[in-house]
Amino acid sequence: MYLRAVHAEADVAKLHQFIRANPLGIFTTAIESRSFPFLQSSHVPWVLDTEQPKADSTHLGVLRGHIARANPQAKVLIEHLKSQTNSDTDQPVQTLSRDIMVLFNGPAHHYVTPKFYTETKPATGKVVPTWNYSAVQVYGRATIYHDTKHPATGSFLDKQIRDLSLQSEKGIMGYEEKPWQVDDAPSSYIEILKKAIIGVQIEIMDLGGKWKMSQEMGVGDQKGVVEGFRALGSEVGDEIARTVEERGKVGVKS
């Protein structure tokens, strides 16, 4: 992701907050395979763990998720792991040898018409359309839990699906006092479903954020962008207007 300085966000706490607010990330791998395409991507909802290990001030967090075993990407991952078999233990090496990427997108993005640039357009005409959006990109190493006979797989998936359900249920209005829980379903049914998924745990090695929200424009044009998006009368427009104000600090009042 191109991180132009004026759009970049490096504050880890803010990046973590963005991921938690937008947990559906695009999980991307690049792995050679005779049976499947080299590049694979899947939309995966993630749980972010940020508890910092003692004596590790550089810890960036861990993502936990799962994907369907029938997903071609899961098949590529398992195929790759089997090719990394440790001959001494005859057990699959769980951590991928290749880096992975997860891209998280913000909920509000929109085309920006040059007509919003109320300062530069009438003065010089030297403006062109663009697109405003926000995103956070994660790079890391993934450990894959796919061996149904290994106790670690069952433990990981059990914790993963419970934590993800709890995290997601908090956002369902009207059900805060009694959210749905995994234990509400028959345990035998859950065990069958667990065999149909594999777990993915990502140690974050690097992450960066991009809020492309008209920061490169002058204050007059930023005000025009805010007013233009507010005039759309939509939730997306209001959210972008608010973010342009926040990021550009144009000080336009509602």
Rank of each mutant, 00 (worst) to 15 (best):
A68Q: 11
A68T: 05
R69T: 07
R69S: 03
P72E: 10
P72M: 06
A74P: 00
L77E: 06
I78F: 01
I78N: 06
K82V: 06
Q84S: 08
N86Q: 01
N86Y: 00
S87V: 10
P92H: 06
Q94W: 10
Q94H: 02
Q94K: 14
T95P: 02
L96P: 02
L96S: 08
S97M: 03
S97E: 07
D99L: 12
D99K: 09
D99S: 14
D99P: 14
M101C: 13
V102R: 04
G106M: 04
G106R: 05
P107L: 02
P107E: 08
H109N: 13
Y111G: 00
T113F: 02
F116E: 00
Y117N: 01
T118P: 03
K121S: 09
K121E: 14
P122Q: 05
P122I: 03
A123F: 05
K126P: 03
V127M: 10
V127L: 06
V128L: 10
V128R: 00
W131T: 07
W131D: 06
N132G: 03
Y133L: 00
Y133F: 15
Y133S: 04
Y133E: 04
Y133N: 04
S134P: 01
A135K: 13
A135T: 13
Q137D: 01
Q137L: 09
Q137P: 00
Q137H: 13
V138L: 03
V138S: 04
V138P: 07
G140P: 00
G140I: 03
A142E: 03
T143Q: 13
T148Y: 01
H150F: 05
P151S: 09
T153V: 08
T153G: 06
T153I: 08
G154I: 07
S155Q: 14
Q160A: 12
Q160L: 09
I161W: 03
R162S: 12
D163W: 04
S165D: 04
L166D: 10
L166Q: 14
S168A: 15
S168H: 14
E169A: 15
G171I: 01
I172E: 02
I172V: 14
M173I: 05
G174T: 07
Q181H: 11
V182R: 10
A185M: 11
A185G: 01
P186I: 06
P186W: 08
S187I: 11
